[in-house]
Amino acid sequence: MSIHPFPNCGHAAAAAQQLASEGYVRLHGAVPASRIAAIAADLALRFDATPFCSGGFYGERTKRFGRLLIRSPHIADLVLHPGILALAESALGSWCDRIQLNLTQAIELHPGALAQFPHRDQDMWQGSLGEVEYLLNVMWPLTPFTEENGATLIWPASHGVEALVEVPREQPIVAAAEPGDAIVFLGSTLHGAGANRSAGLRRGIIVSYCLGWLKPYENQWLAYPPDVARHFPPELAALAGYAQHRPNLGNFEGQCPSVLFGGYPDEPLAATDALRPDQDVLLGEFVSGQRAAGDGATRS
């Protein structure tokens, strides 16, 4: 499906609809190819220096590295892409107060790389299956993705309750794409890298978002400690974990962890509620009831 969804609300709705029904959508021309070329140039030396992975799942003819927000200033444009964030909110927002960044990872398949074991990324978490969506993945090609060089394989309609089916009902599709395109798929969608039968490299970036109350794949606070994340735009810092997930999850001394952007405090901090609106209402009623009861006892 060829969609350019972002200037046009109708196209955005069509992208969200296909993601919900098929478990994936390819977005053609989601960002200018020149932006991807700049990222590819920024990451080139790191690709060269990174050793091959160890283990059959990651791929012994594959290179991977993370922490991309500190490796190219243009990665933030991908992470904060408004159309992608809208898809992530649409897919995940029913199950969390806020989404968070799960990882940014660069991947390079070398000639001779075997096809990856088909898998669902939601299996990182042993939660309820078939009911909740935990994750949204976005693959950004740095080089053309073709069947010959190991383009991502996706099993359509293998998501949601179909993740409970042992054998997928559909055959996989080859997610061929060009730099500037985005391949978006759910964490419950069966997928895997193809085999690189070409003579060239296949490079890409995976950016993923997950429910804000999950432990993410990449430890964001270690990848981007406060002295790094304090230079991020506020919305990017929040995605990278420097925001509380109401009620009170991910706090530092009872406050938003972004308080560390000013350095570790010399004086003790006051723990401060960070509650959902519905919890605020219930708490207010509870406290008012106690105060009313106390006033009545005093008057009697």
Score class of each variant (00 low, 15 high):
86 A>M: 07
87 L>S: 09
90 S>N: 15
92 L>T: 04
93 G>M: 09
94 S>R: 15
96 C>R: 10
96 C>T: 15
101 L>S: 03
101 L>Q: 05
102 N>S: 13
102 N>H: 13
103 L>C: 12
103 L>D: 02
103 L>W: 00
104 T>P: 03
104 T>F: 08
105 Q>P: 02
106 A>C: 15
106 A>G: 15
107 I>L: 15
107 I>E: 12
107 I>K: 10
111 P>Y: 00
112 G>Q: 03
113 A>R: 08
118 P>W: 06
118 P>L: 10
119 H>W: 07
119 H>F: 08
119 H>P: 04
119 H>R: 01
119 H>S: 13
120 R>V: 06
121 D>W: 11
121 D>R: 06
121 D>V: 09
123 D>V: 05
123 D>C: 05
126 Q>Y: 10
131 E>A: 13
131 E>Y: 14
133 E>F: 04
134 Y>W: 12
135 L>C: 07
136 L>F: 12
139 M>D: 11
140 W>Q: 06
142 L>D: 08
142 L>Y: 10
143 T>K: 10
144 P>I: 02
148 E>P: 00
150 G>H: 05
151 A>W: 02
152 T>E: 04
153 L>M: 13
153 L>I: 06
157 A>C: 13
157 A>F: 01
157 A>T: 05
158 S>A: 08
159 H>R: 01
160 G>I: 04
161 V>D: 00
161 V>Q: 09
161 V>S: 08
163 A>G: 13
164 L>P: 02
164 L>D: 01
165 V>F: 00
166 E>Q: 02
169 R>H: 09
169 R>E: 07
171 Q>F: 02
173 I>R: 06
173 I>P: 07
175 A>N: 08
176 A>I: 05
177 A>T: 10
179 P>E: 06
179 P>A: 10
179 P>M: 11
180 G>H: 05
182 A>S: 13
183 I>R: 06
184 V>D: 07
187 G>V: 08
188 S>A: 07
188 S>K: 02
188 S>C: 04
188 S>D: 08
189 T>F: 10
190 L>T: 04
190 L>K: 03
191 H>N: 14
192 G>I: 10
194 G>M: 03
196 N>E: 03
197 R>F: 01
199 A>K: 06
